[in-house]
Design a protein around this nucleic acid. Structure first.
Length: 876
RNA sequence: GGUUGCUUAGCUCAGUUGGGAGAGCACUACCUCGACAAGGUAGGGGUCACUGGUUCGAGCCCAGUAGCGACCA
């Protein structure tokens, strides 16, 4: 093994080997299934750190379950990502000055499919670098044949149930992508805009009304004006007409509850074709719907002089004209919320348009009701269930049609002559007389079916569906709870009668070092592949699983990656030590039945505790906490103590002891590698191959289980005493400037026979760690004059340092310590004197307090005695 | 406006049934001893945002306040 951990060497070729040996396929022999479907990444995208996080968590779960003997399936796949992919391909074509219309729908789609293949390979490449243990034989794509069949069936069934309808409503329109968007694809951002106050003259009367708007260009589509029915200021206007400035169209003043009297002037313009609320008011009062914009956001012929101008250009021109004509009263600065397309970033226009919708209320009700049953989805962390519920309770109908070419084409046909509508999974018989709907479905419509459509649904005999659905756990970020999780839940309930997964593990977002969201515009994105090249996938995975707590965002930093690498390097070097010392020690020679030293018993007991804790924490998806337990065990217990103590035994021990020591060294390492394997699969497998082992891979090795025979609280207590003793000597050495190379005498006065026997038995460890010239361990000892001392639980430690002890300083230090113990005693005694505490607190807590009190008193007395002695010397 | 998260060491963050405040990095002193100097040993450093409440006992539970963030409207 090399002296340093070299991730590229460790990881190279390893994944390919796993694939060759076909280790990621479900184990048919496994009893209980455990299944996960991957959140399909956008096929023409690139995996970012968020994906790396997401897939790492899934891999950790699935690898542990696989080792634990479950029949594990992790199903991979990708998403066709309608708008994003189509936009990319269009962009690419535009470089050659080709538009999609030049090619036509069919040719264009061929181009997109080519792209898809290329990018899918990239993504698989990236997955392999991360080390994901997915079953590629089951890889699916949201647009493949089986999934298309599922999508059509769902569409047709929902339509037949009346849960899908087509109609003309106000939707969010993306003028750049030129498609409809659903509510949640719109980001509302506060922007600095203006509040324009405009005069609308009253027809057949005196004066004018003042109307304020943030979007003056839409006034060209005004077909009414509204006031609140109880607004005393405007009672006289109701039913009258006002004149639309510049255009000179007469608008009726209507009364409607919707109007907020407090906001602006209390009079609002009504533009039914360009505002969702105005649309509703317009319906109620039978106002005309006048569309003044084209699909690209420019003004259309209804805009008169402004036709052809972009909407923002038109706004400027219009304001200028209003001002010149004397209609503009004032312009106030105002920050207001403006919808932006989540995809293209442009300002979204509310637009009157004919689209397909999913009627949400019945589906949402069903989903909410299901959360009250045994079949509920368990959200981790819990609080996200509330997020889900709140959204479901307030959900609006879902616009599912998109004016794109790339996607599932809507299975609806219109009769060329009669215009009759046909909805079906296949085209009508006389297809030549029909024309299929040009639009495609929202990508999320197909993603919503992912957990069951990938498993063969709607085929009633699909084996995977029967065996692996509902899936066990879904892992994803909180940013797509609405987009995806919610929709999977209601679609699954509607079509399979079951929730699609038992658990949803929700994680946060990865931010940059300064806590900013990573984004293209900021240029602060970090490519996980670069991180892997630099630190290795295992280090990245360790950071991703260990650096956070559930549901919280995490900041990426190279400093954390350094720490991550350091840890793996530590494991690497500890393993190197084990390998170097094993020699030709074989797997069959491993024998834990021999006489064990305190070190052996202790490390095995600590291993057992660690297995227990890690297993419990994994069960709760607490990978960060589990990682911390492993870190402490490996670094502090195994490396700092066990390995150091094993050196004594491997050099000075008997042959029998050497066998036991080697056995424990390799046994604990083996178990630890297994515990770590789900988190850092590459390096653990590499090390495992260097140590004696049986079986072909850790991937399918057994996960450690606790062994009650290894429990040993006494060994843990004794070892703690030994550690405390060694530390106290080290502190004194440092304090007295007596490094380990310089010999000193160590006198240990134990509390009783038990401690004396234990320390005498283990004198060789004390000698190794403390390097004494003379070591005395007894219940009564002669203490010389000039000493430095320490009090530990069960013993007092004295180190004679003739000529080196500043008695005054030493007394000062001891006084300080005495004070500390006095305070502790006071605290404990106060507690124990409190009847309520003794009565109410659990017995073990009270008992522990009593123990502490005893220990503190012993230490207090020992320190007091030492002070007395030093004082005598000072006087003598 | 509604919902929600965060506020703990210089920095980044853990702290899950309420029972002596932790890690990594940074800092100080010392150490090349054959696993590891990207290391070892020992150490310094905190009014757990604030106010009140519940409790024998609160970083943790409850109510409120402030600052920052997210989501929804």
């Amino acid at each position: 093994m090399s002296k340093k951990y070299e991730p590229s060497k460790v990881e190279e070729g390893r994944y390919e080997k796993w694939l060759e040996e076909d280790l990621f396929r479900p184990d048919e022999k496994g009893t209980e299934p455990y299944s996960v479907v991957i959140p399909p990444p956008n096929v023409t995208g690139k995996l970012h750190l968020g994906h790396a996080w997401d897939t790492t968590l899934q891999d950790i779960i699935i690898r542990q379950k696989r080792m634990q003997g479950y029949d594990t399936l992790w199903l991979p796949g990708m998403d066709h990502a309608g708008i994003a992919t189509q936009a990319k391909v269009e962009e690419k074509l535009a470089q050659d000055s080709i538009s999609k219309y030049d090619l036509g729908r069919e040719k264009f789609l061929e181009k997109v499919w080519d792209w898809k293949e290329e990018y899918a390979d990239n993504i698989r490449q990236q997955w392999s670098k991360v080390g994901v243990s997915v079953d590629y034989s089951r890889e699916r794509f949201t647009l493949d044949e089986g999934l298309n069949k599922a999508v059509n069936k769902v569409f047709v069934d929902l339509y037949n149930k009346g849960l899908i309808y087509r109609g003309e409503y106000i939707i969010n329109w993306d003028p750049k992508a030129q498609t409809a968007l659903s509510d949640i694809e719109v980001d509302h951002k506060d922007v600095n805009g203006a509040f324009y106050h405009i005069k609308y003259p009253i027809v057949d009367g005196e004066g004018e009304v003042e109307i304020a708007t943030t979007r003056p260009e839409t006034m060209l589509g005004d077909t009414g004006v509204a006031v609140h029915p109880e607004d005393e200021r405007y009672q006289h206007l109701i039913g009258k007409k006002v004149l639309l400035p510049l255009v000179n169209r007469e608008l009726t003043v209507v009364a409607d509850d919707y109007v907020d009297r407090e906001f602006g002037t209390g009079v609002v313009k009504i533009t039914p074709a360009h505002d969702p609320n105005d649309f509703e008011i317009g319906k109620r009062h039978d106002l005309e719907q006048m569309n003044v914009m084209n699909k690209d956001g420019s003004m259309n012929e209804n805009a008169g002089n402004y036709a052809g101008m972009d909407r923002f250009e038109a706004r400027k021109a219009l304001v200028k004209d209003l001002k010149e004509a004397g209609y503009l009263i004032k312009v106030e600065d105002m920050t207001h919320s403006v919808g932006h397309s989540e995809r293209t970033g442009v300002i979204v226009e509310p637009r009157l348009s004919t689209q397909w919708f999913v009627k949400m209320q019945p589906l949402a009700e069903q989903a909410l009701k299901n959360q009250q049953t045994e079949d509920k989805v368990t959200f981790v962390p819990e609080r996200f269930e509330k997020t889900f519920n709140n959204w479901m309770e307030n959900v609006h109908d879902w616009v599912i049609s998109r004016q794109l070419w790339w996607g599932h084409r809507i299975p609806a046909w219109y009769h060329k002559e009669t215009g009759e509508l046909f909805v079906g999974e296949t085209a009508p018989q006389d297809s030549e007389n029909w024309e299929q709907d040009n639009d495609v479905l929202d990508t999320w419509f197909s993603s919503a079916l992912w957990p069951f459509s990938t498993m063969g649904w709607p085929d009633p005999d699909a084996e995977d569906f029967k065996k692996y659905f509902p899936t066990s756990t879904l892992v994803t970020g909180y940013d797509i709870i609405f987009f995806w999780i919610s929709r999977m839940i209601f679609q699954s309930l509607e079509f399979t009668g079951r929730a699609p997964f038992k658990n949803v593990l929700i994680h946060g977002l990865i931010r940059d070092e300064q806590g900013r969201k990573m984004s293209k515009s900021l240029g602060n994105g970090i490519d996980p592949m670069d991180v892997i090249d630099q630190y290795g996938a295992d280090a990245l995975r360790w950071f991703l699983s260990n650096g956070s707590s559930p549901g919280q965002d995490v900041r990426f930093s190279y400093e954390k990656m350094d720490a991550s690498w350091n840890f793996i390097n530590k494991i690497w070097n500890a393993s190197r030590y084990v390998v170097m010392n094993l020699g030709d020690f074989s797997y069959d020679a491993i024998d834990l039945s021999g006489d064990k030293t305190i070190a052996d018993k202790w490390i095995l007991a600590r291993l057992n505790q660690t297995i227990e804790q890690v297993t419990e924490l994994f069960e709760k998806f607490e990978f960060g906490e589990a990682g911390r337990k492993l870190y402490t065990f490996i670094w502090d217990d195994y490396c700092d103590w066990y390995i150091e103590m094993s050196k004594e035994l491997l050099i000075q021990g008997t042959e029998k002891q050497k066998v036991t020591t080697k056995s424990v060294l390799v046994y604990v390492l083996d178990q630890t590698l297994r515990l770590l394997h789900p988190i850092m699969p590459f390096v653990t497998e590499e090390i495992w191959e260097h140590i004696p082992h049986k079986g072909k891979s850790l991937v399918t090795a057994d996960y450690p289980e606790t062994d009650s025979r290894l429990k040993n609280q006494e060994a843990i207590d004794n070892m703690n005493m030994l550690i405390e003793l060694i530390r106290s000597v080290r502190t004194i050495r440092l304090d007295a400037k007596r490094p380990l190379s310089k010999e000193i005498d160590i006198l240990i006065k134990t509390k009783g026979e038990k401690e004396k026997e234990f320390l005498r038995e283990n004198h060789s460890f004390i000698e190794r760690f403390c390097n004494p010239n003379d070591l005395v361990i007894d219940t009564e000892i002669e203490i010389p004059g000039e000493v430095k001392s320490a009090v530990i639980s069960g013993a007092e430690v004295y180190i004679p340092l003739a000529g080196l002890v500043d008695v005054k300083e030493e007394i000062k230090r001891l006084e300080k310590e005495k004070e500390k113990w006095q305070q502790e005693i006071n605290r404990v005694e106060k507690k124990l004197a409190n009847d309520k505490f003794v009565k109410n607190a659990p017995e073990n807590i009270v008992e522990a307090e009593k123990e502490k009190g005893k220990d503190y008193k012993e230490k207090f007395e020992a320190v007091t005695n030492q002070i007395e002695k030093l004082k005598n010397i000072g006087e003598g």
